[in-house]
């Protein structure tokens, strides 16, 4: 079956070619794992599809002076094999290995995973924990934006029409421990809950604790840095307090994935498990 509405297709090799290619109403794809489905279902009906998967400025990974710099066109399977070091990079490798299935990981890209801002997209979790920056290009200029401010809500970001994420940069968090937990009902379905935690503990005291929760239970991404934990000793009480804070004010809708209270309970448990593991408690 042909996709119902026809379009032109261009595949720029670099940002200069992208400038020439992009025009009003163009729709960008990289791997196309979600974009092609949006085209099939006529959720988007562009006149032009621009494939940015081979833009040379968005390729490759490098590390220098504590900063890791990833091309947004990197495929998820390439992230599984990243040859950069540090706890954030370890977490990205782990998260990537659990995304969807081997075929989706061959096709899907880092940039697509961030730009979609679907609450079940997983790569924003370690990147928000690391306070990563996005190098964005559009209208002949670059600008940088922190990923924590870039994702405004489910499927809503700071990207303007025609803008592309070119690179993703973060500082490694040496001395941190991390943990990542998620829960789903069916393979390849949306996640009920996701919880990622990073912590630094020194001489038995918490120096830093960061948490990102996502998934259907929260319908978005929430970053928390529970201040009351700082300086405290890791304990069951602290873990429970952080979990309470993470789920406070959320009221997911009941649907085929389960009732609202179930989703809240799942997320709470995931937070407890991940915070406990990150604290080494």
């Amino acid at each position: 079956m042909l996709i119902p509405v026809g379009f032109e297709y261009l595949k720029p090799k670099n940002l200069a070619e992208l400038d020439e290619a992009v025009r009003d109403g163009a729709f960008l794809i990289s791997g196309g794992t979600v974009g092609v489905r949006l085209l099939k279902e006529r959720i988007v009906r562009p006149k032009l599809v621009v494939d940015i998967s081979e833009v040379e400025e968005a390729q490759g990974a490098k590390q220098g002076e504590g900063i890791v710099d990833l091309g947004a066109a990197l495929k998820i399977y390439q992230l599984q094999r990243l040859s950069v070091n540090g706890p954030v990079s370890d977490m990205i490798r782990f998260v990537s290995s659990g995304i969807a299935d081997p075929a989706i990981r061959t096709m899907g890209s880092l940039g697509g995973n961030i730009a979609l801002a679907d609450p079940s997209n997983e790569l924003p979790v370690p990147l928000m924990l690391a306070d990563a920056s996005l190098l964005i290009y559009g209208q002949h200029r670059f600008h940088e934006e922190k990923i924590r401010g870039f994702i405004h809500g489910p499927h809503r970001t700071g990207l303007k029409p025609g803008e592309v994420i070119v690179r993703v940069r973060y500082k490694e968090l040496d001395g941190y421990r991390w943990s990542y937990k998620k829960h789903f009902i069916r393979n390849l379905d949306h996640y009920v809950g996701i919880s990622g935690a990073m912590a630094k503990v020194d001489s038995g005291k918490i120096i830093d604790l960061r948490l990102v929760v996502a998934g259907e239970a929260i319908m978005g991404f929430k970053y928390l840095a529970p201040e009351r934990a700082i300086g405290a000793r890791p304990s069951e009480a602290i873990i429970k307090e952080v979990a309470e804070e993470a789920v406070s004010g959320i009221s997911p809708k009941s649907d085929r994935q389960g009732p609202s209270e179930y989703k809240v309970a799942v997320l709470k448990k995931l937070v407890e498990l991940s915070v406990k593991e990150a604290l080494g408690a």
Binding site: Y9, S53, A103
Partner: peptide, 26 residues
């Protein structure tokens, strides 16, 4: 046709992909 069943799996340069989610031009 949504990437869930794997019936359309083929290898590209030796790795699996779901050919229903890819354009021929890609």
């Amino acid at each position: 046709e949504t990437g869930h069943c794997g019936a359309c799996s083929v290898l590209i340069d030796g790795r699996p992909v779901k050919s229903c989610l890819m354009l021929a031009v890609q």
